[in-house]
Design a protein around this nucleic acid. Sequence first.
DNA 1: TAAATTTGCAACCTATTAGTTTCATAAAAA
DNA 2: TTTTTATGAAACTAATAGGTTGCAAATTTA
Lengths: 107, 107
Amino acid sequence: MMRRDIFQAIADPTRRAIITLIALNAMTPNALANHFDMTRQAVSKHIRILTECQLVKQEQAGREIYYKLDTNKMKELDKWLEQFRKIWESRFNQLDHVLATIKKQKK
Amino acid sequence: MMRRDIFQAIADPTRRAIITLIALNAMTPNALANHFDMTRQAVSKHIRILTECQLVKQEQAGREIYYKLDTNKMKELDKWLEQFRKIWESRFNQLDHVLATIKKQKK
DNA sequence: TAAATTTGCAACCTATTAGTTTCATAAAAA
DNA sequence: TTTTTATGAAACTAATAGGTTGCAAATTTA
């Protein structure tokens, strides 16, 4: 089976919606499927992909399975963004500096 | 043409590599293609996708075109992550609180 | 001017994706 | 026990993604 990563997982809008839905409260596949205009099986396939890259954790309760977001994996995305955050923050500082210089000249 | 978004753009590992390469210094398609085991045209297609969702900006210099990352669009990803960052930070605080309580009980 | 270089675009091919329907299994309810 | 409910998995399909080759246009160099 294809090796999935978190970047591929969040590329799909349905999966992003699922992630948001189960971020705070665990939900069953059936409950999740009610939120989308597709079959429960299609939603289940998305859950499978999210599980494969460890973005969700599950808890069995009788015949029901509750899925919930595992925020640990989300941190990987944050980590990747870190390198660019440095860049845009330094640029903002540069702009800030430019604005301050202009202000100074106007005085 | 398909409407692309940043999530789809960063799903591909080659595009993530391109983003990292042009984050600090602008590069031409030819120069970029040297870094990958694929044709220049394939790299160009990736650049096109990054351009479509405004992740890169370009600057023409004669017959050469220099592409560079536009960090503004990257902030959208950061914004989306924000909601989850709150969750994992609050959990860390909870754990922090638990540890503090255990420490207290040991005394 | 002629040749070489840089680039984007179109046509094409194959693998993957995201949905569907159908089915099997396990647990709960009647 | 029988029926209903919740779930995952398999087989199939249409659309999309990501690569290729070939080409045309514009700029630079010889």
